[in-house]
């Protein structure tokens, strides 16, 4: 337990500089806009007085480090400033949007893992047909653009079959069944490529483990083949799989931006895209910060999971 506690603490401390770099990066975006961001936001016909007022409101005349300090202090208290267009407080807006993005990405990842890991194992231990079928699916899943797949799913399930609504969203708390109907196609869209990656990683990782000497030794102990494959080999293969899941979650967050736009889901991704087109910089900044934080948190969780699966990882750097 002591080993594990130290591992968790060390990994938590290592996350701080990453969060710092990310927050500085996103803070600088609005300051890096060529020319005067306020002029860009307000348009050419803005009066000098209005420009001065907005500059003061956004504290753009303060020294850069003071601006960062004030911004990050606000963020830590859940105060992200206000929407430049609607003047609504961003904290409340994000509180509505984050659950949608989380629901979409987490459900997609769960589906991809639940489908991809067993298929990857079958592809590793199964016969020629299991291998060919999964390889075909992997090539398909990796090559097809996710948003196009989404559109084709809409064409099939919403257009031709009219089983599911083509777009829109109902919160889970309002109507659980309706929520699932609306989220199903987006989740399938986002999970397809993910599943392909997880199959590929699982298969490669399993093949590597099954070729190691301890597998022969397990057979020599009379361990059942099922237990060798699912108990031992899969546990050894799990660390690389979990690592890929963590990395791919970043891809999934990127994909969520597209899929939310495609299916008109009111998530953070769609918020960012709309805000960019409106030059609504405070919203862009807040949205990017939220998604990047999600990514870092998920990376942290994955690393911890990998450490718990494989004790060699959590022992590294300890005597």
């Amino acid at each position: 337990m002591n080993h594990r506690l130290r591992f968790v603490l060390r990994r938590l401390v290592l996350t701080i500089p990453v969060l710092l770099v990310m927050s500085v990066f996103i803070f600088l975006i609005i300051r890096l806009v060529p020319g005067d961001p306020v002029r860009t936001m307000l348009g050419f016909r803005a009066t000098p007085a209005a420009v001065t007022q907005v500059r003061a409101q956004l504290h753009l005349d303060d020294p850069l480090w003071a601006q960062y300090r004030d911004w990050i202090a606000g963020v830590l208290h859940g105060d992200f400033g206000e929407d430049f267009v609607s003047k609504a407080p961003l904290g409340e807006l994000l509180a509505q949007r984050i659950p949608v993005t989380l629901e979409l990405t987490l459900l997609s990842m769960i589906l991809a893992v639940v489908a991809g890991v067993p298929l990857g194992v079958r592809a590793a231990v199964g016969g020629r047909w299991a291998r060919r079928l999964t390889e075909g699916f992997v090539v398909f899943g990796v090559s097809v653009p996710d948003f196009w797949l989404g559109i084709m799913l809409v064409l099939l399930f919403a257009g031709t079959l009219t089983w599911l609504p083509p777009s829109g969203y109902i919160p889970f708390t309002d109507d659980p069944a309706g929520n699932l109907q609306y989220i199903l196609l987006p989740v399938l869209t986002l999970a397809a490529a993910e599943t392909a990656y997880i199959i590929r990683t699982t298969r490669g990782s399993m093949l590597g483990v099954l070729g190691r000497p301890f597998i022969v030794y397990l057979r020599a102990k009379g361990t059942r083949e099922r237990s060798i494959v699912y108990g031992h080999a899969l546990r050894n293969a799990a660390a690389p799989i979990a690592t890929v899941v963590g990395i791919q979650f970043g891809v999934l967050l990127g994909g969520a931006i597209v899929v939310e736009t495609l299916f008109a889901l009111p998530g953070v991704g769609r918020l960012i895209v709309t805000a960019i087109n409106q030059r609504n910089y405070p919203v862009v900044q807040a949205g990017l910060f939220v998604v990047a934080t999600l990514f870092i948190v998920v990376s942290l969780i994955t690393d911890l999971v990998v450490g718990f699966i494989d004790p060699r990882v959590s022992d590294r750097g300890q005597s």
Partner: peptide
């Protein structure tokens, strides 16, 4: 019948 093989590091499952 039981087996003890050459390399104990390779014989044991590293994650168990």
């Amino acid at each position: 019948i039981a087996l003890v093989s050459q390399d104990p590091s390779a014989s044991l499952d590293p994650t168990f």
